[in-house]
Design a protein around this nucleic acid. Structure first.
Lengths: 63, 63
DNA sequence: CGCCGAAGTCAAGTACCCTTTACATTCACA
DNA sequence: TGTGAATGTAAAGGGTACTTGACTTCGGCG
């Protein structure tokens, strides 16, 4: 799965730490998802979509 | 997370086994998701949404 | 009643998500 | 220079997703 989380985050001027706090996960988790080391759980994907005001499918794609 | 997977599946006349084969997971996994024992991974949630032609948010909800 | 498909659940094992702690790198800037 | 913020990565551990195999229960039907 691919995602443009890094773009979305940077576009708001947030550090990985900032986003991690909003998501209530560790900074390392945000980094791992951004760098594609693993996919978020479904509940975390929902929180991510909610924070950016987008649909899950608009943030994450297969491939 | 809640979902109406059971309704969607039954509406198409599929058994848990039928859906499991389409999703390429075990029957027990389908059962566990339907009965709320755990949430699917994000990639599996994508396959589920794809099979039913719906958005992830329309199948799964927080709560 | 006896049989069978469907559903629900348990146990044990593997793999992955997410944590904390820690360390290295890069870059802006005093 | 060097100090600090941001990022990337690693190791070890807890909890969860998913597996196979087996057992139970339920309903429909001969």
């Amino acid at each position: 799965m691919k995602n443009h989380l890094k773009d979305l985050r940077a576009r708001r001027g947030w550090s990985q730490q900032d986003l991690a706090e909003r998501l209530e996960v560790s900074r390392q988790s945000v980094n791992a998802i951004e760098t594609g080391r693993y996919d978020p759980s479904l509940p975390l994907a929902f929180r991510i979509a909610e924070i950016f005001g987008m649909r899950i499918e608009d943030i994450f794609q297969k491939g």
